[in-house]
């Protein structure tokens, strides 16, 4: 073999997964390259969130492997994965609502080597609104502010891999645009991002690669331009108008 071997940041190999007796994911093969944004699209109930649960260690696959930078981490607990650099922002609730903003930031320091002072500097520097509200409960923040607080973990933890689950949910288009600009910046700074998103067009704009999940299987995979038409058609039954 003469071709240079590029180790994937994250790889799912032949993953089958589900809850109890009910299978959700079927033979998933997905590679997250060391740089760039991979967007995972698909209708509700297709298994997108389950895929992220498997990748972050919250759900153990019934068969198949999860590899983090080439190391088999199948079955590893989510906290261990988090400590070695896998940062995962779950759907709709990336913050502790009953903790203050500054206590939330304190929680971002569990990755070894991350210091409280640096976290506060980065988070408050990037989002001055959080600094103003550091004594408030995170649950009292607006939706956009909560998502910024959640994203500040990705900014400060210096992750090797970033998993984002529907960070745009329930947010105003302006805020969504701001968030995705941030995602793009994080990716450009060298952190690979796997992104689950409901806004197909937004995701197509920001992603370098797109995978479409449906009924628990990956149906389409390619560059945004290659899959664009197919994706938009499945989302809004309006060919030509999109």
């Amino acid at each position: 073999m003469t071709a240079p071997v590029v180790t994937a940041a994250l790889e799912l190999r032949g993953v089958n997964a589900g809850y109890g007796r009910v299978q959700v994911l079927y033979d998933i093969n997905l590679v997250l390259p060391p740089r760039g944004v991979v967007a995972l699209l698909g209708p509700n109930g297709a298994g997108k969130s389950t895929l992220l649960r498997v990748a972050s260690g919250r759900t153990v696959p019934s068969s198949g492997q999860v590899l983090l930078r080439g190391n088999d981490v199948t079955g590893r607990s989510p906290e261990r994965l988090a400590r070695v650099g896998l940062c995962s922002v779950p759907e709709g609730r990336g913050v502790f609502p009953n903790l203050t903003v500054s206590d939330n930031l304190r929680m971002w320091t569990f990755r070894p080597g991350v210091r409280r002072k640096d976290v506060e500097e980065t988070a408050y520097g990037r989002f001055p609104r959080l600094a103003e509200r550091r004594r408030q409960l995170a649950g009292r923040l607006s939706g956009g502010e909560q998502q910024m607080l959640a994203m500040s973990r990705a900014l400060t933890a210096d992750p090797d891999v970033l998993l984002l689950d529907e960070i745009s949910m329930g947010l105003a288009p302006v805020v969504v645009a701001e968030l995705f600009a941030l995602v793009r910046q994080i990716a450009d700074d060298g952190t690979p991002v796997l992104l689950v998103e409901q806004f197909a067009r937004t995701a197509l704009e920001v992603a370098d690669e797109v995978a479409v999940l449906s009924q628990g299987r990956i149906r389409l995979h390619g560059a945004p331009d290659q899959v664009r038409d197919g994706v938009l058609a499945t989302y809004l039954h309006a060919e030509g108008s999109a």
Partner: peptide, 14 residues
Amino acid sequence: RAVVDDRELAALTG
């Protein structure tokens, strides 16, 4: 307190 608030998220922070 974080675990009381959201057990799963606490795990995701490490």
